[in-house]
Amino acid sequence: MLEAQLRAALERRERMGRRRTLASTDTDAQLVDASSNDYLSLARSPAIRLALADALAHDVRVGSGGSRLLDGDSQLHAHAEAQLAAYFGAPAALLFNSGYDANVSLLTTLPQPGDIVVHDALVHASMHDGFRASRARAVLAFQHNDPVDLERVLTHLLQERAVEEDVRAGRCNVFLALESVYSMDGTLCRLGVLADTLARYVPVRGARHILIDEAHGVGVYGRGGRGVCDALQLADVPSVRLITFGKAWGCAGAVVLCPPLWREYLLNYARPLIYSTALPPMQVAAILCVLRAFERGEVDANQQRLHARTRQLYEALGRPYVCDPLPPTPIVPVYSAQPLVLAARVQRAGFLVRAVRYPTVPRGEERVRLCVHAHNTQEDMVQLAAAVHAAQGASL
């Protein structure tokens, strides 16, 4: 019975053109990477590999052996958290196995019964999974990056007298959930104006909290890759910053930057942390190797090349870009009614790209997502733009 139901569900998805399959990059090694999140090309860096090999030679265990609260904790984990907190200028840090686990943990544990969560409509699926299990009295979305619509949502909330009284008195926490760089659209968060809007409606400082996911911002922006909040000189605005290491850092895992009390609370209540085997020491060592490279300024040139290549791609595509005040993001969506066809044609031209379809993006907003990397060349950008134009010009 179950097998028939599962098969039927997969067949329905197949008919709708939405069935997912694994796509190994091993068979695409000859293609120019225009798809992965390895923005700074650190995942392929010989220097990072050598540094990690040296670290592993000094008695770093491969696996952790248990959860952090049982047998999986180590001095290396504690050292990494202290070093990351210092580097990002945060009061405390807590390692997680992934950004997904961290977002689910934050949003299922921090909002208390009766609290309110307001979020950008385009936040990641991990946040939505956290919202669904949240104890908040209300979880509401506002239009992407739109402070006017945020005002509308907050005004609507405060029309209920009991909610207004709780918010004005600071008895109700209001959380604003954002991303610094939106992974499918490549847009930068309007953090300053959104924070100001929240402050006008939630007057008690201790009752308003911003959670920002820096997954696609860290490494790409800020001093030494410290992220968008640092680049905008707003690092002290969010209550929590989530830093992930699986993208520009070229590793895996994540760290939550937060107040020490929040860290202790997460240790006690965040189920994905409590009941998961801890991040392997080998992976913690890799994170520290990349951190050392950032601290020594060895990644600055990668960051500069990334921004130069991104501008070159925009210019080759004939797209305007706005440096207000930051360079454009290395995520460039190309919208198409037939993204699979478009992606296949660009792949035949020698570039690894992927189609992104519903439900990952809204219906009618299917696309091919281009990603720029520090190791890409200027000629790569010219040829990629030419391949996109040729594919779009052909009959779809």
Results as ranks from 00 to 15, higher is better:
125 A>K: 12
182 Y>K: 00
208 R>K: 06
226 R>E: 02
199 A>Y: 03
165 E>I: 15
98 S>Y: 05
193 V>L: 06
150 L>R: 06
208 R>I: 00
159 Q>V: 02
94 L>C: 10
104 V>L: 15
123 V>M: 01
171 R>T: 05
234 L>M: 11
205 R>E: 14
205 R>Q: 13
152 R>N: 07
163 V>C: 10
107 L>W: 03
107 L>R: 08
184 M>P: 12
181 V>Y: 03
151 E>S: 13
160 E>F: 00
122 L>N: 10
142 F>H: 07
153 V>N: 01
206 G>W: 01
193 V>T: 15
199 A>Q: 11
95 L>R: 09
110 L>C: 10
101 D>N: 13
145 N>D: 10
169 A>L: 09
110 L>G: 14
129 D>E: 15
136 A>T: 07
140 L>Y: 01
130 G>D: 03
213 D>K: 07
105 S>I: 05
137 R>I: 13
234 L>I: 05
158 L>D: 03
140 L>H: 07
122 L>H: 09
230 D>K: 07
204 V>K: 13
221 Y>N: 10
200 R>G: 11
130 G>C: 10
201 Y>T: 02
194 L>D: 02
124 H>S: 09
183 S>H: 07
93 A>Y: 02
115 D>P: 08
181 V>M: 05
143 Q>N: 14
226 R>T: 05
224 G>N: 08
122 L>I: 09
204 V>W: 03
210 I>H: 08
176 L>A: 05
237 V>T: 10
209 H>W: 07
206 G>N: 06
155 T>S: 10
162 A>F: 00
99 G>N: 12
216 H>M: 13
157 L>S: 06
209 H>V: 06
96 F>N: 15
196 D>Q: 14
173 N>F: 02
237 V>R: 02
